[in-house]
Amino acid sequence: MEWLSLAVLGLLIVISPGADFILVLKNSVNRGRKAGVWTALGVSLAICVHIAYSMLGISYLISQNEVLFNAVRYAGCGYLFYLGVKGIVTAGANPEVEVMSDSPKEVAVLQCLAQGFLCNLLNPKTMLFFLSIFSQVITPDASGNGSALLYGLYMMALHGLWFCMLAMLFTSSALQQHLLSMKKRLNQACGAGLLTFSALLAIKT
Rank of each mutant, 00 (worst) to 15 (best):
K184P: 07
T90K: 12
L200C: 15
N94C: 05
V107C: 02
W162S: 04
I15C: 05
L195S: 01
A52N: 07
L121S: 03
L200A: 03
A157C: 14
G92F: 07
L201T: 07
K105T: 13
I47W: 00
L68F: 11
F21V: 02
V97T: 08
R185F: 12
R73D: 04
L186A: 04
L61W: 14
R31T: 04
A157F: 13
H50A: 03
Q188R: 09
Q115C: 01
F21L: 07
S181I: 03
G10W: 13
L6A: 10
N65S: 15
A46F: 05
A35H: 05
H50E: 12
L153W: 04
C77N: 05
A7G: 01
L4E: 10
A46R: 05
L200T: 10
A19H: 00
A75P: 05
V49W: 12
L128C: 03
A40C: 01
F134L: 12
I62R: 03
S5D: 11
I13L: 14
L56S: 14
L131M: 14
M100G: 12
L149Y: 14
H159E: 09
A202E: 05
T39G: 06
L61Q: 12
Q136E: 15
S181E: 14
S101D: 11
F117L: 15
A157N: 01
L25E: 00
S181R: 14
A19G: 06
S147V: 13
G18R: 08
V107R: 05
Q176V: 09
M155E: 08
C164I: 14
L175E: 12
L131I: 05
L11Y: 09
S103V: 01
V99H: 08
P95C: 08
Q136K: 13
I51Y: 08
R33L: 11
T126V: 15
D102R: 13
Q111I: 02
S28L: 03
S5W: 13
L179G: 06
G152W: 01
L11C: 06
A93F: 00
L122K: 05
F129Y: 15
C77G: 06
W38F: 14
M100N: 13
P140K: 07
L201Q: 10
G92I: 00
I133V: 15
T205P: 13
L153E: 00
F117Q: 04
F69Y: 14
G152T: 09
A35G: 01
L180I: 12
M165K: 09
G144M: 08
A189I: 11
S147E: 13
T90P: 02
V72L: 13
L131A: 04
S54N: 09
Q64F: 04
S101G: 08
S5N: 09
N70M: 06
Q177G: 11
L179F: 15
N187T: 01
L161D: 02
H159T: 10
A199G: 13
L6Q: 07
N187H: 09
F197G: 00
A142C: 11
A40E: 02
Y74T: 03
K125S: 01
A174Y: 12
G92M: 06
L195W: 00
S54I: 06
V43S: 06
Y151H: 05
I138F: 00
L25N: 12
L68C: 10
F129S: 13
A19L: 03
F21E: 02
